[in-house]
Design a protein around this nucleic acid. Sequence first.
DNA 1: CGCAATCCCTTAGTTCGTGAGATATTCGGA
DNA 2: TCCGAATATCTCACGAACTAAGGGATTGCG
Lengths: 163, 163
Amino acid sequence: MHGTPRPPATPAQALAAMDHLIAAHLIGQQELARRLGLNVTDLTCFAFVLEAGDELLTAGDLAARAHVTTGAVTGILNRLERAGYVTRRPDPADRRRVRVAAVQDAVARVEAVYAGHYKRLNALFSDYSPEELAIITDWFTRATALAHEYLEKLNRNDPDEEC
Amino acid sequence: MHGTPRPPATPAQALAAMDHLIAAHLIGQQELARRLGLNVTDLTCFAFVLEAGDELLTAGDLAARAHVTTGAVTGILNRLERAGYVTRRPDPADRRRVRVAAVQDAVARVEAVYAGHYKRLNALFSDYSPEELAIITDWFTRATALAHEYLEKLNRNDPDEEC
DNA sequence: CGCAATCCCTTAGTTCGTGAGATATTCGGA
DNA sequence: TCCGAATATCTCACGAACTAAGGGATTGCG
């Protein structure tokens, strides 16, 4: 598909396309979580744990990223731990903290479930030239920055103010 | 930003960017719903109602689109109706059916809350040339098609098979 | 050293979804 | 025309998961 001309698009069309993708992705997440014996929140938190890598997250970090209370995190970790996805580890430097480590087996289990879709997505990506990919990634990066900026605005302002 | 060269990206980077965007979007949806006195499910359903326009959806249509049971839709419609977002209307052709119509005032209320973010997103989109936008929209469209294809695979197959 | 702050957990209460089944309506075939 | 099956929505009981409030342990600053 490299170099193939595409019909130009308007911002409105792009917005609509984006909404549809997000909606589809959400349903997919639910289904994936179900197959892993988790709910969407738990799966999302496990993804945060994986993303953090060796810099093990604390329970509080998870609460902040997932935007839930620390009480909820207790439940999330209980479920993830019981299902064999993570383990709680003491923090040697601060005994109030709980560090969350991913279980290696579970990583493979999750990757197996994601594999099919990721393979297809990768195929889709490799159907674009590096220059085209750069445009797409650039857009994602900027859109995400925008979304975060928006979130901060929402959290700062009175609950009824326009943002 | 037209024509400005950007660093090339790999599929993996693009995938990560996509995940982050969707995660941020989800949190944003929660906050927006909260401001409208709704939960995310209800807001999503209201969006489906708006998207359908004059072709009023039935309660069953909503259940299918939101992937919830018809029992849940009853609750969703009760909440949306009580909060003044929609009204239930009899279907003249089939008295078993319930048609869902958006309340005009509520449309404006929702648009006001969305306005800020949508304006910013639009600004972002209009920062790209039509050709660049075409690439982005094309990618969204194809990624959505992929996601739907994946969903169908998931729904068809045994719950444990690879897809 | 002592007190406030921090971190995670516990508990009670609420909300929302599912699954099973009830009720009302429509449709198709004898 | 009539009756049984299918369809559409609603009701109810129950369970899962979140919040808010507060408790106990630990830390760190004055």
